[in-house]
Design a protein around this nucleic acid. Sequence first.
DNA 1: ATGAAAGCGCTAACAG
DNA 2: CTGTTAGCGCTTTCAT
Lengths: 339, 339
Amino acid sequence: MKEIFLKDIAEKLKLSKTTVSLVLNNRGDENKISKATQKRILDFARDNNYKPNQLARGLSLGKSETIGLIVPNISDIFYARIAHYIELKAKEFGYTVVFSSSNENAETEKELIHSMINRQVDGLVIASTQCNQADILRLKKSKFPFVLVDRHYPEIMTNYVIVDNLGGVKNMTEHLLKNGKKNIALITIKSELDAMQQRRLGYETALRESGIDINTNLIKEVDRFNFEAEIKDAIRELTNDSNRVDAIVFTTHYLAASGLRELKSLGINVPNEIAIISFDELGAFDLVDPPITSTKQPVSDIGNLAVEILVNEIEKKNKESINQQILQTQLLVRKSCGV
Amino acid sequence: MKEIFLKDIAEKLKLSKTTVSLVLNNRGDENKISKATQKRILDFARDNNYKPNQLARGLSLGKSETIGLIVPNISDIFYARIAHYIELKAKEFGYTVVFSSSNENAETEKELIHSMINRQVDGLVIASTQCNQADILRLKKSKFPFVLVDRHYPEIMTNYVIVDNLGGVKNMTEHLLKNGKKNIALITIKSELDAMQQRRLGYETALRESGIDINTNLIKEVDRFNFEAEIKDAIRELTNDSNRVDAIVFTTHYLAASGLRELKSLGINVPNEIAIISFDELGAFDLVDPPITSTKQPVSDIGNLAVEILVNEIEKKNKESINQQILQTQLLVRKSCGV
DNA sequence: ATGAAAGCGCTAACAG
DNA sequence: CTGTTAGCGCTTTCAT
C-alpha cells in the first residue's frame, strides 16, 4: 500500500487536480461538479486510503489547523489535565495540538512562542511564566491569535481564562476562621505572578475583613525551584514558640504536600495542632492522612473555554472583541481543618 | 516588524536564494561561500529576526523535525510524566513533539496514527491501546520509524521500551509473603494488554514459587472504564467470610486509590486487617493514610530511551536493528503492608 | 462542469 | 563561490 497523492487520483481518474481537490474539500456542490464525478473521486480516495499531506496543505492555505500549547510543565497534574481538555476540545474543532513546556523559564517561553509560530500554528494557548510581558505584548501587537490560561498579565488587554484566585483563597481563609482558627499562616510561592499575588491578597482580605491584623511573620514565600528545602524552614519557624500558628493556607498543591510531609516528620498533629488547607488538588488528597480540604479549579472549563475563544479568534467569527473569563473555584471540605 | 522571507534576504543582499539558504543551514563552509558573504547573511537574518517557515521547509525536505506522541491519556500522571521527559529529550535533538490521547480506543488510535503521519511527523512514540495489532503491524511493514513505550505487542518485532512488569509484581507479592501474609488477592484491569497479563503472571509466579495454589476467587479483573464501581464489589467479595484475604495487590495506582477508598469506607484497617500494595504511584502515596508501598517505574528512562531509539531510527544511524529495552522497577517500602 | 497554471516558502541538483 | 531552475503536494484564480 504505497502513498497516493492528489495528482495520482487526478491521473487515474483522468480529471484535473482542481476538480479532485475541490471535491475532497467538500466544495464539489458549490462548484457544480456532477454528483457522478464526485462519487468517483470520493470512492477512489477512500479505497486507496488517500490522506492529504498537511504540510503542503498548510503551506498553500497559510494555516496548519494546529494550535500550540505552552505550559510551565506538562508533568504537573494541573497542566496535564488542562492539556487533556484542550486536546479534546481542539479535536472537536478539527485542530491538532502541539505542546511544549517552558519550565518556568521566560527565555524558553520566548523561544517556544517563536518556534511554534514558525511551525505555523494557527493560534496559541499559553500558561505563561511569570515575567514575559514583552513577548506577550509583541504577540498582541502582531495580532496573532492567542489566549492566556491560568496566568495572565493584568496590564495587557488579552483574551484569558483564569480563576478567581483572590476569591478562592479568601474562601479558604474564611473557612479556617469559621472553624475557630486564630493564628493563620500563609505559605506561598515567591513570584510576581498575578495569580500568586491574588492568592496572597485573598488571604489578607479575609483576615482584614475579620478585623485581624496581618502579621507578615506568618507569610512565607518560598522559591519555586527550591521549595522543598525552604518549606522545611518555613514550617519550623511557623511552629516555634513565638509564632504558634494553628492553621496554614497553602497556595498550591505541591506546597501543601511538602508542608504536610514536614509537619508529620515533626510529629505535629494535623488538624488538631495545626489545620491545613490547600489551593488546588493532587490526585489523592481525599486519601491523605488527614484528607486535605482543598480548592478545586474548574480544569475542564478552563480548557474548553480557552479553545473556544481561540478558535473563534482564529476563524475571526468575532472581530476584535476581547474575551476574558474569570471562573469560580470550589471548596472541597475534608478533614484537615478540623471537623 | 513584519515577516521576512528567504527571498527578501536574497533580494536585499543581492544574492540568490540558494546562497542564503545554504548559509542559513550552516552549509556555507562546505559550499565554499566566502566568510564575508556568510557574515552578511547571518547578520542580516539575525537583525531582521528571520525565521524559516517550517511548513515550507518540511515540505521541501520531506521531513518536519517533529515527533508524534500517542498516549492513552495525557491527564494520567504516568503518561504526563513520560511526555515531559520525551519532550525534554526531543528538544535536545532538535525535535518538537505533537501529542494526542487515544482514550484507550483503538479506532481513535488508528486515526491518530494516520493524522500524525499526514502531518508529516518524522517518527512516532506510541503507548498503544490494547488491541491495535493491525495498525502497528502496518506501521512496521511501511518501515515508518516508531517506538512503543509502556505497552507492546509480544508477537510483533518492534522497538520498544517497557518495564519488567512480571518481575515488578512478583517482587511486590514476595514482599507481602515475607511480611507473613497468607491469603493474597489481586485486583487488576481486565485487559488483553501484555503488560497486565505480565503483572498477573508476576503475582501467580510468586505464589507458585512459594508453594501456594492459585485461588482464582482471589483474582478480580475490573473494567478499565467502570473500575470505580466494580472495585467496590471486588473488595466486598474479597473481604467476606469465605475469602478473608489479608493482603491485596493492585496492578495500577488508580486501582489502589479506589480500593483504599473503599476499604476505608468499610472501616477496614489497613494494614492491620488487610495490607495493600500498588504497582505505580500517584502523586502523594507517601502521605496517604497509610503511606502506600508501591512500585516505581523509571519514567525518565522510559522517555529518554524512547526518544534516543526513535531519533536513531529516523536518522538511520543504525540501519534495521531493533532495539528492545526492558527496564527494572523499584519497590518503595512504606507502611501499607505492615512494618 | 472541468482544466491549466501559478504560487505558498524552502531546498538542492546542476551549471557556470 | 554563486545563480538558475525545478520541485515538494496542495489550493485557487481564471479560463473554457
